[in-house]
């Protein structure tokens, strides 16, 4: 199921890393990013913010009063995910005080850290489960990088949202 998800997300033009353990995931994330990094507090790998700071990177977190003003300058947004679906391949992010909606929207690159236990087989199954539970103010499903086919029906990436989406799978 995880292989199918990874293949599906790649077909949607995402980069997929893992599955790997939390330590390897933290290293992979920290090595990949640069510039101002915005992090939500729902990343399912402990110590990402500290590791980024230790590498000398500038980190923006939702408890920072300058979050809203500075997010537009962030190079990367790192988030967790509520769940993911294999068919059709997509990840779902829930808005929360520590997980602003714009983290996966405004920066040109989005890194999404996903626990493999949160992967569900089909969209219909996921919707049945979601509809039964507590709903966030916004649940955002993401298939891959922002795209448009408005120019002569040929796909162009990064029109409003991120140009690149990287999914890190954590076992």
């Amino acid at each position: 199921m995880i292989d199918a998800l990874a293949a599906g997300l790649r077909a949607n033009s995402c980069t997929v890393t893992g599955p790997m353990n939390a330590d390897d995931a933290r290293t992979a994330i920290v090595e990949r990013v640069s510039g101002l990094v915005a992090c939500t507090d729902d990343i399912p790998v402990p110590g990402v913010v500290d590791a980024l700071l230790a590498r000398g990177l500038e980190v923006l977190t939702p408890d920072d009063p300058r979050w809203t003003a500075r997010l537009v300058d962030a190079a990367v947004g790192i988030t967790g995910a509520r769940l993911a679906v294999v068919q059709p391949p997509a990840i779902a992010l829930a808005a929360a005080p520590g997980a602003p909606r714009a983290t996966s929207l405004v920066p040109p690159e989005h890194v999404c850290v996903l626990r493999v236990v949160d992967v569900i087989a089909t969209f219909a199954d996921a919707m049945a489960e979601i509809a039964d539970g507590e709903l966030p103010s916004a649940l955002t499903w993401i298939g891959g990088p922002s795209r448009t086919a408005d120019l002569e029906m040929i796909t162009t990436f990064g029109v409003h949202g991120p140009r690149a989406v990287e999914v890190v799978l954590v076992s």
Partner: peptide, 16 residues
């Protein structure tokens, strides 16, 4: 590519 499911305005403590 994006599906947004909105259940009400921003809640207490949310930043956007």
């Amino acid at each position: 590519n994006y599906v947004t499911m909105i259940s009400g305005p921003r809640r207490a403590g949310e930043l956007d």
